[in-house]
Amino acid sequence: MTTKTLNASAAGTSVIPALFAVVLGLGILTLTGHVQASALHDAAHDVRHATGFPCH
């Protein structure tokens, strides 16, 4: 019983790290895959084509 309660409370706190990681991950993907600034675009060009991001 006690363990169950502890697990439940741990579960309650652990949404924020997951949310943070999703935002961070999507932020990285926006930079590597989508931002059209020419320095970024040129550096990521081949990767965008090979990974199926819309490139130019």
């Binding site: 790290p17 997951a18 949310l19 990681a21 991950g25 999507l26 990285i28 993907l29 930079l31 590597t32």
Partner: peptide, 14 residues
């Protein structure tokens, strides 16, 4: 490529 897959991985692991 490593950055892109790290982005994917963070979303997936979360």
């Amino acid at each position: 490529t490593m950055l892109t897959y790290t982005g994917y991985a963070l979303v997936m692991v979360a």
